[in-house]
């Protein structure tokens, strides 16, 4: 074979070799076929652990109870006991250090999530006491009269 044929051939082979060597360094050791085979289980195993390290933000009512047992106990006696503290008070994250203060959602829209009357016969929504937001004091916030920690009508402010 002539020189001008196999000289570029050597260049191409060297390039392929380089790519293969680079691949050894670039592709992580844990990347490959795992339990579910090539079709479903071809991945970098370390990523599963990465996902478990994401920070938890919603800590749950037991976390709140630790420092605010009075608030916890009082709301537990009301129908609002089923609502997590953080649904209105926002995610605790690492409260009290971060954030030091939680932003409470006292908006009308927050109450209307459940208490805007929707007469849906095949849903639990129909069983919740509700109002027509367009007719029931449309311009003021619910918390002006109602106490969300004592939602019964005796709790009216």
């Amino acid at each position: 074979m002539k020189n001008h044929v196999y000289r570029p051939l050597i260049v191409v082979l060297c390039l392929i070799g380089l790519i293969l060597i680079a691949r050894i360094f670039y592709v992580p050791k844990d990347f490959g076929v795992h339990e579910r085979g090539y079709m479903y289980g071809w991945y970098r195993e370390g990523n599963t652990e990465d996902w478990t390290k994401v920070a938890v933000k919603y800590q749950g009512e037991d976390y709140c109870k630790g420092c605010h047992p009075d608030k916890y106990d009082s709301i537990m006696k009301t129908p609002h006991a089923i609502i997590q503290c953080e649904n209105c008070h926002g995610p605790a994250i690492e409260h009290p250090s971060n954030p030091q203060k939680l932003a409470i959602d006292k908006s009308r829209a927050q109450c209307l999530r459940c208490h805007a009357s929707l007469p849906y016969p095949t849903s639990g929504r129909a069983k919740i006491r509700g109002i027509d937001p367009e007719k029931h004091n449309p311009d003021i916030e619910c918390v002006m009269c109602h106490n969300p920690h004592k939602p019964s009508l005796e709790g009216l402010k």
Binding site: V54, E86, N87, P91, R113, T122, G124
Partner: peptide, 19 residues
């Protein structure tokens, strides 16, 4: 359980903030 769902959307709010 779709009978229990009342469409309050607290799940969506919590999901978006948590994730």
């Amino acid at each position: 359980d779709t009978y229990k769902c009342v469409g309050c959307g607290f799940c969506v709010k919590a999901c978006k903030q948590e994730n």
